[in-house]
Structures are given as C-alpha cells and as structure tokens.
Design a protein around this nucleic acid. Structure first.
Length: 804
DNA sequence: GGATCCCGCCAAACA
DNA sequence: TGTTTGGCGGGATCC
C-alpha cells in the first residue's frame, strides 16, 4: 500500500474506457439532469459514448434521449417505486429541456464541474428512495443499475453509499447490492455516534487543536505536531471502530478490511465531531487534524492533510445532501476557514437528557427561592417551551411502541460461542439495558415509530450483534448499556487482541460510565484489557477535567457539594438498579475500566422480552416500562431542549458519583423514573418537602402538570403499577394521569433533594473549571436575580459563522 | 491563489 | 483470474 502511495499515477484514459464502461464523457443529457435536480434522474439514460462527438445538441436528439428514458424497463422500475410514470417523466424532462434550451446551448452542453458534483449526484441518488422505507417498496440498491441510471461511474456511487452506510441508511446485502433503510436508523445511529464521540474525547481534542492553533503552535513540520498527536491519545491502537447498529452488521469482511481509512469510518468520525461540538460547527481543518491524529503520527504531514481534506469534502457533500450539515465559514485570525455546521437532528444522550430535566426542575421549582424574578434568557424561554411541548406529548403522543423484535431473544441466544462465556447475569443486564435503549433523542423530523424497520427485516433474521459471525474471527465483548442509551458490543480482531492484553499508557482511555463500571464482567480476560481504577482515574482526571467525576464515581466519595451529592444520589439509584439485578453475583463483578483499542462497536438497542430467567414478570414490566415511560415523561428525558441549549449552560455533570444506595427490588422494578438518573434518588434525604399545594401550584404554573392534577407531596418512591404490555399501552386519560403522576413523583424526589440547598440549583450551571466557569446566579442592580450572562457558553474563540 | 472536489488509477478483497 | 470495492492523489475548476 505504501508502495502504491509513492508510485506516480499516470493517467491511462484508454484503459479507463475499457475498465469503466459507464464512464461518460461530458454529455448534454447529463447537463439536463444535473442542472435540473427536479428532473427524475431515471429520465436520463446512458448515452453511448461513441455517438457523442458526432451527436450535436439539438432538441430532436434530446427528445430521443428523453423518450428512451421512458423505456419499459425504467418505467417499470419507476412504477414500482410509485414515483412517477413515463408520461410525467417525459413531460418533466421536456420542461427541463425547454428551460435548458433557453440559455446558451453550447455552454450548457458542457457540464460544469459543479453539475457533476458529488452532492448533486447524491441528491439524485436520494431522490430515488424514500426517507423512510417500507416493505412495500423496492429497497434494494443495485450499484450497477444506479450508476447506469444516474449516468456516473460506479466509483462515485461507492462514495455515496459508503457515507450512507456510515449512518446506517443503507447496508450492504451482497455484492453489488445494498439495502435501503432510509432514516429509520438515523436517530439511533447518531446517538451511538455521539456516545462514541464522547468516549473518544473528541470535545477535548477539538479544544486542544483549537487552542494550539490559537497559539500558533501548530504547523505541519514542527515537533509539536507529534506532541499534539500524542496528546490526542493517538496511536494505532485507537484506530477506528465502526459503530454499528444491531441487525446492520457488515456483511462483507471487505468492509472491515480497510478499516480506519475507509470513507465510512471517516464519515462516522466526522459526524461525531459535530455531535460533541459546541457550537456544532466543525472546520475541515480541525476535523482533518483529528482524523489524522488518530492514524499515525507520521501522517501529520501536508499530503496526508490534503488527502484527508479531500475525503472530508466528499463526505461533507453527501452529508449536506442529507441535510445533516451545511457549509459555513468560520472567521479566524488567519482568514476564514471552511467549516460545516450541523443541521441535522439534535442528539441527546441519556445523561444530557437527565441534566436537562434536572435543570428544568431546579429552575422551575425554585424560581422565587431567595432570588426572585429571573430574567428569562431566551434559552430559558426555550426550556419552558420545551416543557410545554413535552406536556403536549404526554397528552397527545401516540403510544411509542418499543421496538421489539421477536428475534431479539433469539438473537441474544444465538450469540456466537464466545458469547456463551458471558455469565447469565451479564446477559440479563444486557437484556435489561437493551430495554432502555429506545430512550428517545429529540429529532426535528417526526421519526416514524420505532417499530421494526421493514427494511431491516432481511437483516434482522440474523443474530443480534453477532456481526460477521461465520467468517470473521472476532472476539465479542459485550458492554452494558451506556448512559446514552446505546449499548455496544465490541468486536475485536484476534490480530488486535494481543494489543490489549497489557496496559499501554498510550491507549486512548475510554472511561466507561459508572453505571457500566459496576456491571462490567470479564467476558474474555484475554481480550479485555483491565486497568486498575486508580490508573484509569488518574489518567482521566488529567486528560479530561470534565470527566473527572467519572473517576470519582469509582472512588470513595469524600468532600462533595450538595449538588454533587444530589447528582450522585440520582445516579446511584440507577446504579443500584443495575446492581440489584445482579446482586446475586455482585461480588464477582470487577470494577474496572475496559479499553478497546480497536474493534467494532455494535450498539444493542432493542428491547428484549422473555428469556429473562432472573426476572419476575413484574420486573419485566418495570423494565419495559422504563422505555415506555421514557418516551412519555417530560422528566424522563424527552424534554426537547437542544444540545446547544444544554451547552449554553455548560452543564458539566454528566457523570455522577454514585452512592451505594440499595433499593428494594419492587421500587426498582416498578419505578419508571429509574430510567433517568437525575430523578433517581434515594429516599434518604432528610430534607423537608414543600407543601403539596405549593408544589402543585408550581408544577401547574410551569406547565409540568395539567391544572386539574394534584401531586402528593410524599416523595417516597412508590410502587407504580405499570402495564406489562407496553406495546399495547394506549394513551388513555388514565395513562396520562399515571404518567403525570410519575412525573410528579419524579419532581418530588428532586425537590426532596433540592430543598436541601440552593446550591443544587447553582451547581447545575457550574462548569468544573476553566475560563468558561461562571457562577450562574447573580443579582441585578434592580434587586432581581437572573441568570447571568456569564452563565452562557463562552467560546474560547470567537466564531463568526456566516452562511456560505 | 486558495478552495473545492472530479476523476480515474490501481491495489486489496472477493467470487 | 476476473470482478468488486474503495484508497488515494493529480490536477482541473471554482471562487
């Protein structure tokens, strides 16, 4: 490969004609479709190259082309997709033709570079398929056909498909064959990507690069490059893992073979950068540096950088066509830099949702405690709005059926032989966690209910999370669910397994959230790299102050602020929930960090039913209801606050130190609030509860509960009967009341803690340190209090964003 | 002149 | 051995 890189590339056009018969010279008909994206791409048939030079651009000749576009074969294909019929195609194409001919014919007969852009091609590609596929439609993509119909060489289709594959919008079915999934999986994918991005500390990497740039310390041949790359935790061990979703594992080993440099992996990383960035703007330069940094240190040279940029443009074009990003420019000291802004759906991890809920509760429940009459910052207005929206969801949202696949249990039971090594307890955990996985992220587009995607059907017959089972000698390692709501199965190649048998300080540390830490079981000690808590914590604390709390999670709690305690308690409940489930062999659980230098991250996102040997029906119901309630409760994580808002207040406490508070199994099984750590609290707080009437008034006032609903002031976790058939839950008024009651209880729990000290409120806004750390509450000169400006996110660098 | 990215060579992976 | 897949970078075009 290296030899190939250094070999000078000589163009051999004669050869390319033979090898790429689909390649067309610049033709007039391609102009037609490319200038007019509205035209059905299928109206443009491939034009035999040999006739092109002698074929002048005339209305007649083009009409011939247009008519040929309506050939029975193509027409039938179109009819199958119910997109159009031949008549409309011809008419449409005629219209296009007329428009085209009104201009300078000759010039337009030469398609410009723009008209052949990957973005435009991608638009045409996407136009062929619906956003959300259904079984009734033809969801298979034949690359040859598509390339032919879009009149491009297949190479270009690969570029598009690879990026789409990275988002699980398509998956490879067989040679030359892909399956179209559309946006069914997009939300989950983005959530998983965000989680992985967070684990990879992309935020910190971005900050570091920006800081270096700012200090003019970053150049292409300085020693500092290596230094920085090292500091980024870069080494071959941290090379890419492709984030997969269950049922969408790669079907060809080839896909795994080119690994980190593949466009799909780059695409995922690129997306991750957006998802973890604040604001969600990523410059190509930063992205390229981070992606290079993850390869090899010596790659940090100009040519690699250039190549990376090229690829990022390719990816960006496709992502733009998908509407996920948008090109902008970032003004910097050294002129403006090309960048892209995330315009896709907001993606919240569970922990963020929790914090958001907490933030709202604290704000709304203590609006006049001591400090009164907050001036509502726009972001707060949004928060209130989000509460209202959420309340509407409670009242009107249809049942969001948990994605339940009948094959899930089979899937689990069909794990590869190595999976059999997983102790039953861990298996239960996984199942339980997978129940929790559907916790929704807020998406602007109405996502279809997460029923089993029809497009996935051919895939779902495969064992869940098995990956390249039969042919790939990978070592599966199951990880429990992460706070983001997405669990992974990480598959390690045996070839890489040796790299993790010993601890290497150069590994990029991937601290697992505390909820997982207590659950991690050694599945394959040969594969799993275990590192002592102390080592990991030290490293984490050094590397990432914002995650230092993660370290604390695994150490004895010493001095804490009340808010920390509050947060920790809430997290603790979730932990204890999990702990409870596996209490029987709890002592066998090792508290450790696990580091995976490479492999495949396979998210497990499906609720599993049955096959829960250790679960009572009640527990099952409770577990499943978690998911359901998560959809329904404004407290449980559906509050549609945008990530930017979250970031605006710079909430740091995504990792919460747990207390080892044990709850009764009943409360665990039955309390849906457990799905949200922020609401989970031990009832050990000695704080007094506010009066019920005051509370009700407050809740009603802020719109958390309807006017007629009364909330008892008893904060004690109570058994809440929940349906054991969440998929059949109807949103009757009873259910709404039930949900609202749950919400109220959640709030009460928070209140229970919150009344302890105003510090709770304040600390929700406190960053762990650094220049952006500003106390959140300050008194105005007029005697009122408001959220100070300083609370807002203050970028370290001025970013002037202008639409391009 | 830098930004953008098309184009197709050619090697790895696969059938 | 032929085909599929896709990494890669030259260099054309755009701005």
């Amino acid at each position: 490969l290296e030899g190939k890189k250094t070999t000078s590339r000589r163009r051999r056009p004669y050869r390319s004609v033979l090898k790429t018969p689909l390649k067309q010279a610049a033709t007039s008909h391609s102009v037609l479709t490319e200038i007019q994206p509205d035209c059905q791409p299928l109206t443009t048939p491939p034009k035999p190259k040999e006739i092109l030079p002698a074929d002048p651009w005339t209305p007649t000749s083009n009409l011939k082309i247009l008519i040929s576009a309506a050939s029975p074969e193509i027409r039938n294909r179109e009819q199958r997709r119910e997109l159009s019929n031949s008549t409309s195609e011809v008419l449409q194409a005629k219209h296009c033709l007329q428009e085209h001919l009104s201009g300078d014919e000759y010039e337009k007969s030469q398609p410009s570079r723009k008209e052949k852009s990957l973005g435009l091609l991608c638009h045409k590609f996407l136009a062929r398929y619906p956003d959300y596929s259904s079984t009734a439609e033809n969801n298979y993509i034949c690359l040859d056909e598509v390339a032919e119909e879009l009149n491009v060489e297949r190479r270009r289709i690969y570029d598009i498909v690879n990026v789409l594959e990275s988002l699980h919008m398509v998956s490879r079915l067989a040679k030359n064959k892909y399956v179209w999934h559309g946006r069914h999986n997009l939300s989950k994918t983005l959530q998983a990507l965000k989680k992985v991005g967070e684990d990879n500390k992309y935020t910190q990497q971005i900050q570091m690069i920006k800081k270096r740039e700012y200090e003019h310390e970053f150049d292409f041949d300085g020693e500092r490059n290596e230094e920085m790359a090292r500091s980024l935790g870069s080494n071959e061990h941290s090379e890419m893992s492709f984030v997969e979703l269950p049922g969408m594992e790669f079907r060809a080993a080839s896909v795994n073979s080119r690994k980190d440099k593949s466009l799909r992996v780059m695409s995922q990383k690129f997306v991750m950068l957006f998802l973890v960035s604040t604001p969600q703007i990523v410059s190509l330069e930063v992205a390229a540096k981070i992606l290079i940094g993850e390869d090899q240190l010596e790659d940090l040279d100009k040519s690699k950088f250039k190549t990376k940029i090229r690829r990022l443009y390719d990816i960006a074009n496709v992502l733009s066509s998908l509407g996920l990003i948008e090109k902008v420019h970032v003004a910097e000291e050294r002129g403006r830099k090309p960048a892209f802004k995330w315009t896709g759906p907001e993606v919240l991890t569970d922990s963020q949702e929790s914090i958001t809920s907490k933030e709202q509760c604290s704000k709304n429940l203590f609006p006049s405690r001591g400090k009164q009459n907050f001036t509502r910052h726009p972001s707060l207005i949004k928060l209130v709005r989000s509460i209202e929206n959420d309340r509407r969801k409670i009242q009107s949202a249809p049942t969001s059926p948990v994605k339940i696949s009948a094959s899930t249990d089979q899937n689990l039971s069909a794990f590869p032989s190595k999976m059999a090594q997983v102790p039953a307890m861990a298996k239960h955990q996984l199942e339980g966690q997978s129940n929790n996985l559907s916790s929704p992220e807020v998406v602007p587009k109405p996502d279809l209910p997460h029923t089993t995607a029809p497009s996935q059907q051919p895939v779902l017959t495969q064992p869940l999370g098995v990956g390249p089972l039969s042919h790939s000698p990978v070592s599966p390692v199951m990880l429990p669910q992460t706070p983001s709501g997405v669990s992974y199965a990480i598959y390690l190649h045996p070839s890489q397994a040796h790299t993790v048998t010993t601890y290497s300080p150069s590994f990029m540390l991937q601290p697992l959230p505390c909820t997982n830490v207590t659950e991690i079981k050694s599945i394959n000690s040969k594969v799993l790299n275990r590192i002592t808590t102390e080592e990991g914590d030290n490293q984490i604390a050094k590397d990432d102050p914002t995650k230092s709390s993660t370290a604390k999670e695994r150490s004895t709690i010493k001095s804490e602020t009340s808010s920390q305690q509050c947060l920790k308690r809430s997290q603790a409940l979730q932990d204890s929930n999990l702990i409870k489930r596996c209490r029987s062999d709890e002592e066998s659980l090792d508290t450790s960090l696990t580091f995976f230098p490479s492999g495949y991250l396979i998210a497990l996102t499906q609720c599993t039913h049955g096959n829960k040997a250790g679960f009572s029906n009640k527990e099952k119901a409770g577990v499943c209801s978690l998911q359901h309630t998560t959809y329904s409760s404004p407290i449980a994580g559906v509050i549609p606050v945008t990530a930017s808002e979250l970031n605006t207040v710079n909430i740091p406490a995504f990792h919460i130190t747990p207390l080892n508070i044990m709850l009764s199994p009943t409360s665990i099984a039955a309390a849906p609030v457990l799905s949200n750590p922020c609401l989970n609290s031990s009832n050990t707080s000695s704080a007094q509860n506010p009066s019920s009437s005051l509370l009700n008034f407050t809740l009603q006032h802020v719109g958390l509960i309807p006017a007629g609903v009364q909330v008892p002031a008893n904060p004690v976790l109570q058994h809440v009967p929940v349906s054991s058939q969440p998929e059949n839950v109807s949103h009757s008024s009873e259910n709404r009341n039930l949900q609202e009651e749950k919400v109220s209880k959640n709030i009460l729990q928070l209140l229970d803690r919150g009344t302890k000290s105003q510090t709770v409120t304040e600390n929700f806004f406190r960053t762990p340190g650094g220049p952006n750390t500003v106390s959140s509450l300050s008194a105005n000169s007029d005697g009122t209090d408001r959220i100070s400006q300083g609370t807002l996110y203050i970028p370290q660098r001025k970013l002037e964003v202008s639409e391009d």
